[in-house]
Computed example of a mutant assay.
Amino acid sequence: MPGIRSQACLLLLALGLSLPVGASERTLRVAVLSKSPPMSFVDAAGKLAGFNVRVAHALCDVMSVRCELTAMPLERVVDAVAAGEFDFAAVSLLDTAERRSRILFSKPYYRSSSIWFARPGVEPGAAGIRVAAVTGSAQSRYARAHGWNIVNVPHHAEFPALLTERKADAVLLPMASALTLRQEPSIQSLGLVTTVIQRPELSGEVCFGIDPQNPELRDQINKAFDRIKRDGRFDRLNSEYLPFRLQ
């Protein structure tokens, strides 16, 4: 009865105890990227959109929690998740040993390669060329490790201007982002050549990053991934945002 329920709540408050919080009131802090189409971007209405954004919402729906999305640059994602600033990152992170030592990973949701996008005759590692990559990415670390002349940028949206203005001779980026870049009208006339780079450091399983202090959340996210794949939501989002199948 309402009267009895009210009395019980008053008793809990009098004893200094917290009222139970329903699962629907739980909020997860989720890091996303804002300029990495088609995976994550800000649409014409000023809202976060893209495959990873929609998958994050689907996972939170399955877990009966509320998602609070915050956009940030890729270079900060792993540090922020490792520090507990976010519960998870709905960001396509290559599962590397260095990252795995700092954060937890969900089960892989696709496998990625890296793409070398350059003018004809500009080969990876050639002397004197300028290679653009996103700061904090596996591609940037690879270029730096090999002593390449790197033009680091905060997000993929910088690439078209760098190429058209000849401030970079090539870009190195993930497969999904390369597909979007090829569709940019400003660079379609440049005759750029696409080369798939199948190096271990540049290809592999792609996962969401999870707070290292919360293995229970990792298990919940993995179960939620299984659920949205079974019920068709993952496949529908795949068709909406990507011209190739992720599984």
Rank of each mutant, 00 (worst) to 15 (best):
E158S: 13
G121F: 06
V81R: 03
A23E: 13
L179N: 14
V78N: 05
N222I: 03
A127T: 10
A176E: 15
C9T: 13
M39N: 12
P160N: 04
P2K: 09
V193I: 07
S239Y: 10
L15G: 05
A44M: 15
A83V: 09
V42E: 11
G125V: 04
K47V: 09
V131C: 08
A168L: 04
E25Q: 15
D231P: 10
E68Q: 15
R119L: 08
L33K: 05
K47L: 15
R99F: 00
E85M: 09
Q139V: 00
P120G: 06
R182Y: 13
R29C: 09
R182L: 14
Y109N: 04
K223I: 07
V62M: 09
L104K: 00
V196P: 10
L48I: 13
E240I: 11
N52Y: 03
V81C: 05
D87P: 01
T27M: 11
S101G: 11
P185E: 00
A133C: 02
I197L: 15
V32R: 04
N214W: 10
V206I: 15
L19T: 02
A161R: 14
R102M: 00
L13W: 11
V131H: 03
E184W: 11
F208L: 11
N222M: 08
G121N: 02
V196W: 10
I221Y: 03
N149H: 14
D87E: 06
L217T: 14
G84K: 02
A14N: 03
A56C: 14
Q183D: 13
P73S: 07
L33F: 03
R29W: 01
L17Y: 04
V196N: 15
E98P: 01
I115M: 06
R99K: 07
